[in-house]
Simulated assay, not measured.
Amino acid sequence: MSKWKVYLLGFATLLMAPLGWLLCGMPEISDFLQLEQLTGIWTGIGAEYGIVFGIFMLIVTNTETARKSFSVQHQLIRSMQLNIADILFLSLCAGFGEEILFRIAIQQWLHPVLASVAFVAIHGYINPKDWETTKYGLLVCLFITVLSYAISGEQGLWFCIAAHASYDFVLFYFWGRVQGSM
Rank of each mutant, 00 (worst) to 15 (best):
G25I: 08
G97E: 00
S71E: 15
V60N: 10
P128Q: 07
I51M: 05
I87C: 03
V170A: 07
E36H: 12
F96G: 06
E154V: 15
Y49N: 09
A165C: 00
K5T: 03
V170N: 06
A66F: 07
F159P: 10
L8P: 00
L38F: 14
I55N: 01
M57E: 07
H74N: 12
V60L: 01
A115G: 13
A17K: 04
L88F: 13
A12W: 04
M26L: 11
L142E: 09
L22K: 09
R78W: 00
A85S: 11
A17Y: 03
S181Y: 12
M57S: 10
R177S: 10
P27F: 03
L15Y: 01
V178K: 14
L76C: 04
M1E: 08
L76H: 14
K68D: 02
L171Q: 09
M26Q: 09
Y173R: 01
Q75G: 10
N62M: 08
W158G: 05
I151C: 04
Y173N: 04
Y49G: 06
Q73P: 04
V146I: 11
E28M: 09
T13E: 02
G137D: 02
W131K: 08
T65H: 04
L142K: 02
R78V: 13
T39G: 11
A165S: 15
G20A: 11
A115M: 13
Y136P: 03
G44K: 10
A121K: 11
H74A: 14
S69L: 07
Y167E: 00
D130I: 03
G46N: 13
Y149E: 01
T61R: 08
V117W: 00
F119D: 02
Y125F: 15
Y49E: 08
F89P: 04
L88D: 01
L9T: 04
R67D: 05
L82K: 01
S116M: 08
F159M: 14
L147I: 01
L142C: 13
I151H: 14
P128H: 06
L14G: 03
Q179C: 09
L35P: 07
A17L: 11
S91W: 07
G137R: 03
R78Y: 00
L92K: 06
W109M: 02
H123N: 06
A94F: 12
Q34K: 09
F143Q: 00
A162E: 10
L101R: 06
F119R: 08
C24E: 13
G50Q: 02
G25A: 01
G46V: 08
N83W: 07
M1Q: 14
M1N: 13
C141Q: 05
S181R: 15
R78T: 03
T43Y: 08
Q81R: 15
F70W: 08
Y125N: 08
L58N: 00
D130Y: 08
Q37D: 13
V178C: 03
A118H: 10
E99I: 01
Q75M: 13
L138F: 05
G180P: 06
C160K: 05
I84M: 12
E154M: 10
I161M: 04
R78M: 11
L139C: 15
L14E: 02
S69C: 09
L14F: 07
I106R: 00
F174H: 10
S2N: 13
V178T: 15
I29T: 04
